[in-house]
Design a protein around this nucleic acid. Structure first.
Lengths: 156, 156
DNA sequence: ATAATCGATGTTATGTTGTAACTTCTCGGT
DNA sequence: ACCGAGAAGTTACAACATAACATCGATTAT
C-alpha cells in the first residue's frame, strides 16, 4: 500500500526557532523575549512537557520565578498559531517541527519512557474528519494519539 | 463506499446495568453496592462526567460524602473491564454501551454543549493501530477523539 | 511633553483533576 | 473466634488549569 506524502520542511534548533518566529509574526503576534524563552524551553524537551515543566525550565534559565500562569497563556498562543501542539492524553505540550504547514498530527506516546513521535497521515486523519462530518459535526479537530510501548522500550 | 458493520448489543437502562454487571463478574471482579452506585451515576449522565461529578452524584444519592478517591478507583476498574471509557480530551468518563465487545472507539465531543457521541469504525482505528505498529510501537491503544460542534449546536 | 490606550507580563488566589498512604470494614475460610 | 484479603473510607497532597486584577512599556492622540 502506497502512502501519499508531501514535502515537509522539518526544522530543528535555530532553524526551528526562526520558523516559529516567522510563523508567529505572520499571525500578527509579537515575538517577545518571554515568548522566545518559552519556545526555547519547549523545544529543548525531548518529550512532551507540561506547562509547569516549562515554567520551571524558564525560571531556572532566567534566575527568577516565572509563573505557570504566564506559560499557559503563551502555550495557548503557540497552539493557536501552530507552533506547538497539546498532547491531550499527557496534559502536555510539544513543539511543532513544521509550524509552516497545517496538519492533524498523530502522536505515538510511549507509556514506558514518554518518548513521543508524531506522524502525519492525512488519509487517516482525513478519514476521522470525514466520519465526524458524517455524524453532523462541523469544524472537526481530530485528536489522534496512541499509547503503547516504543521500540526502544520493547526489549525491556 | 461501504462500511463494514457488525451487530452490537446496544444496552441502556436496566439492560446496560445488567450487561455491565455480567461483564465485570466475568472479569473475576465483584459487583458491589458501591460499584453499582458508581455505575448508575456514570450511566445517568448524558455527557462525559468527571470523577468529581460522579462523586457528587453518588454522595447526593446516598446522603453521605463519597470521596473522589474511591470513585477513581472504581472508574479505573471499569475502564480496565471495558465498562467505561475515559475521554482524554475532556478528563472525563463515559459508560460503554456495549461492554461485551471490544472496540477502539471514536468520540465526537461538542465544544459547545458537551454532548458526546461515540462511533466505532474499525477500519479507521485499525489504520491508526497499523500506523503505530509500523513505527515500532507495540500494544498500541488508540485514542481517537474529535472536538467540534454538533449538529444541534450548529444553528446557534 | 503628557495623557490615553493597548498588549504583554506579573502576581495572587483559587478551582479542578489525580494519587498516595494508611485505616477500617466486611466477608469467607479455618 | 480468628485470620486474611479485597473493598471502601479518610486524610493529605501533588499536578494541572484558570480567573481577576495590577503593572509595565511601547505606541498613538492631543
Amino acid at each position: 500500500m502506497l502512502m501519499s506524502h508531501h514535502d515537509h520542511q522539518l526544522h530543528e534548533g535555530e532553524a526551528l526557532r526562526a520558523a516559529a518566529r516567522e510563523r508567529l509574526t505572520k499571525e500578527g503576534e509579537q515575538w517577545t523575549d518571554m515568548r522566545g524563552s518559552v519556545f526555547d524551553a519547549l523545544a529543548s524537551f525531548d518529550k512532551p512537557a507540561s506547562a509547569y515543566d516549562i515554567a520551571e525550565a524558564v525560571s531556572k534559565r532566567q534566575g527568577r520565578r516565572v509563573a505557570a500562569n504566564s506559560v499557559y497563556r503563551i502555550l495557548d498562543l503557540f497552539v493557536n498559531a501552530n507552533l506547538a501542539r497539546r498532547v491531550e492524553s499527557a496534559n502536555a505540550y510539544i513543539a511543532n517541527q513544521h509550524p509552516d504547514c497545517l496538519h492533524d498530527c498523530i502522536f505515538l506516546i510511549c507509556d514506558s519512557c514518554g518518548q513521543t513521535v508524531h506522524i502525519d497521515d492525512d488519509s487517516l486523519s482525513g478519514g476521522v474528519r470525514k466520519a465526524a462530518k458524517s455524524a453532523g459535526f462541523s469544524a472537526p479537530r481530530p485528536v489522534i494519539e496512541v499509547r503503547g510501548t516504543c521500540g526502544d522500550c520493547e526489549g525491556q
